Computed example of a mutant assay.
Amino acid sequence: MPMSVETLHAHLAEAFPDAEIAIDDLAGDGDHYRARIVSSAFAGLARVRQHQLVYAALKGQMGGALHALALETSAPPASSGA
Rank of each mutant, 00 (worst) to 15 (best):
M3W: 07
G60W: 10
A70M: 12
F42N: 00
A35T: 03
A27E: 12
M3F: 10
P76L: 07
P76W: 13
L58F: 08
A78D: 15
A27V: 02
F16R: 04
Y55A: 04
A10I: 05
H9V: 00
A41L: 00
R36F: 08
A19F: 00
S79N: 13
Q61E: 15
K59S: 05
I21C: 07
A10N: 07
V48Q: 13
G64T: 13
I37Y: 05
S4G: 09
I23K: 05
L53G: 01
V48L: 15
D24Q: 15
A78N: 10
P77H: 15
P76S: 06
G60D: 00
A68R: 11
L12P: 04
D29Q: 14
R36D: 07
A46N: 12
H32M: 02
L26P: 01
S4Q: 13
A56C: 05
A10P: 05
A15S: 14
L45M: 14
M3D: 09
G81L: 14
H51S: 11
A22F: 06
Y55F: 08
H9F: 11
H51P: 08
L45V: 07
D18T: 07
A68W: 14
F16V: 03
R49L: 09
D29P: 04
P76F: 11
R36I: 11
S80E: 12
I23A: 02
E6I: 07
A19N: 06
L45T: 03
G30H: 02
G63S: 14
D18C: 15
A70Y: 01
L26W: 00
A15I: 09
P2V: 10
D24G: 01
A43V: 02
E72R: 14
A19G: 14
A19K: 04
H51C: 12
Q52P: 05
E72K: 13
Y55W: 10
R34L: 03
Q61N: 03
A68L: 06
V38S: 04
D31S: 10
A70E: 14
L8R: 02
V54W: 00
Y55R: 03
L71I: 13
A68P: 11
A82V: 14
S40M: 03
T7V: 15
V38D: 09
P2L: 03
A27H: 08
A70W: 11
I37K: 03
M3E: 12
A56N: 02
A43T: 12
S80N: 09
P17T: 08
R36T: 12
K59G: 01
L66C: 11
S79G: 10
V48A: 08
L66M: 13
I37M: 01
D25M: 10
G44P: 03
G44R: 01
D25F: 12
A82G: 15
Q52A: 14
H9G: 05
A13Y: 00
